[in-house]
Amino acid sequence: MDIVASLSALILLSPVLLVVALLVHARLGSPVLFRQVRPGRHERPFEMIKFRSMRDATGPNGRPLPDAERLTPLGRWLRATSLDELPELWNVLKGDMSLVGPRPLLMEYSGYYNDEEQARFSVRPGVTGLAQINGRNETSWDARLAYDAHYAREYSLRMDLSILLKTVAKVIRRDGVVVAPSQIYRKLSDERAR
Rank of each mutant, 00 (worst) to 15 (best):
S14F: 08
S14K: 01
S14R: 03
P15A: 00
V16M: 02
V16G: 03
V16N: 02
L17K: 00
L18I: 09
L18P: 04
L18M: 13
V19D: 01
V19C: 09
V19S: 01
V19K: 03
V20D: 03
V20S: 00
V20C: 04
V20E: 00
A21W: 10
L22S: 02
L22D: 00
L22F: 04
L23F: 09
L23M: 12
V24E: 07
V24R: 03
V24C: 08
V24W: 05
H25G: 03
H25I: 04
A26F: 00
A26E: 00
A26W: 03
A26I: 02
R27L: 08
R27K: 09
L28I: 01
L28C: 05
L28M: 03
L28A: 01
G29Y: 03
G29S: 02
S30Q: 07
S30T: 04
S30R: 09
P31L: 02
P31V: 06
V32D: 01
V32I: 10
V32H: 03
L33I: 07
L33F: 13
L33M: 11
L33E: 07
L33S: 07
L33V: 10
F34E: 11
F34Y: 15
F34T: 12
R35L: 15
R35G: 15
R35A: 15
R35D: 15
R35H: 14
Q36C: 14
Q36L: 14
V37D: 14
V37L: 14
V37S: 15
V37G: 11
R38V: 04
R38H: 04
R38P: 08
P39V: 09
P39E: 08
G40E: 04
G40F: 06
R41N: 00
E43F: 00
E43Q: 12
E43K: 10
E43T: 10
R44C: 08
R44D: 04
R44Y: 08
P45K: 07
P45F: 12
F46G: 05
F46Y: 10
E47M: 14
E47S: 14
E47P: 13
E47F: 10
M48K: 12
M48Q: 14
M48G: 14
I49Q: 12
I49H: 13
I49S: 11
K50I: 13
K50N: 14
K50S: 13
K50W: 11
F51E: 07
R52F: 06
R52P: 08
R52Y: 08
S53Q: 12
S53T: 15
S53Y: 14
S53H: 13
S53D: 13
M54I: 12
M54K: 06
M54Q: 10
M54W: 09
R55T: 11
R55P: 02
D56W: 03
D56E: 01
